[in-house]
Design a protein around this nucleic acid. Structure first.
Length: 292
DNA sequence: GCACAGGTAGATT
DNA sequence: AATCTACCTGTG
């Protein structure tokens, strides 16, 4: 039974956001399960359905009637990686001698890297290749509707990998996944044959975890790094997509550099939170603040 | 009609 | 080892 949402409540232990960094964190390309509504965002992960809004410099949340506010706040704390001091990490980035990064950090100050469910992050980024963000969201919604568990408000969670393996490639194609359907189905089969494999990958050291992800059909360096950064808190993972490649080429004057060379540049220049720097640069480029 | 979109894998040079 | 190219579908 679909349930209406309850009253708005203040999220007491929320991290410090500006309106801009709040919106960019949840709806700036890290996650594809947030919809912007009138004056709030509605999002889903695992079995959570939560509405969030930035109001009077605070974050307020609303949940379907009957859902547990305490549990919701715990899950929000995990999802927003509240154990990570992003302000300290931002200060440690090389903005003092990098005017491009300085611009990005100033405009999106307070930006965070989410800690999304690992399995869901892998799925969403397998859907993402050569797609625009609105299309990725539509695909994720369609697959959730077809294969995912029903949530408290009557909407649907993303499916488990087991459910995808059982559903088959044809139903993925029906969700407009195109050629990605084969990759996702083959990955689902790979995981079905290896119980615990994904869980072990999530906790493995970053280089080993990346090597394991690269074994999956359809997962190359970019999708592996997105999964590690947005789904496992590995801030040293630096996904290079077409945007980031253009940013490095045009704003950092690295014309002609190969992908592996750009990876080396990122590690050396941005340091061990290079993935966090990447998200600032990505946000600034999309906003038209820096050359891309 | 056609180029392009948060890529990857396999073929070709 | 570097550079094409096919792969689906929606959008402008």
């Amino acid at each position: 039974m679909p349930k209406p949402f309850g009253a708005w409540q203040v999220w007491k232990d929320a991290p410090t956001f500006s309106a801009t960094s709040f919106a960019e964190t949840i709806d700036g390309g890290q996650a594809f399960r947030w919809q912007r509504k009138e004056n709030f965002y509605e999002g889903r992960w695992d079995k959570n359905v939560v509405r969030l809004r930035f109001n009077n410099k605070q974050i307020e949340f609303a949940i379907p009637q009957g859902s547990d506010p305490e549990l919701t706040q715990q899950n929000l704390t995990s999802y927003f990686a509240c154990d990570v001091d992003f302000a300290r990490l931002a200060d440690a980035l090389p903005w003092r001698n990098d005017p491009v990064l300085d611009t990005a950090i100033q405009h999106f100050s307070g930006l965070r890297i989410l800690r999304q469910p690992f399995a869901e992050t892998l799925f969403c980024f397998l859907c993402s290749s050569t797609k625009q963000i609105p299309q990725i969201k539509a695909i994720c919604d369609a697959v959730a509707l077809d294969m995912g568990e029903t949530l408290a408000d009557g909407s649907h969670a993303l499916p488990t990998w087991a459910a995808i393996a059982e559903a088959g490639e044809t139903r993925l194609r029906a969700a407009k996944l195109g050629y990605r359907a084969r990759y996702i189905y083959q990955t689902a089969r790979f995981l079905a044959e290896r119980p615990g494999w994904l869980e072990s990958t999530e906790v493995a050291p970053t280089e080993e975890a990346r090597a394991r992800l690269l074994e999956l059909p359809g997962v190359g360096r970019k999708i592996a790094d997105c999964t590690l950064l947005f789904g496992a808190g590995r801030l040293e993972a630096f996904p290079i997509d077409t945007w980031v490649e253009k940013i490095l080429t045009h704003s950092y004057q690295l014309e002609g550099w190969k992908l592996t060379q750009l990876q080396d540049f990122a590690r050396i220049h941005f340091g061990n939170s290079s993935g966090y720097a990447q998200q600032y640069l990505f946000a600034a480029a999309r906003a038209g603040l820096i050359r891309s």
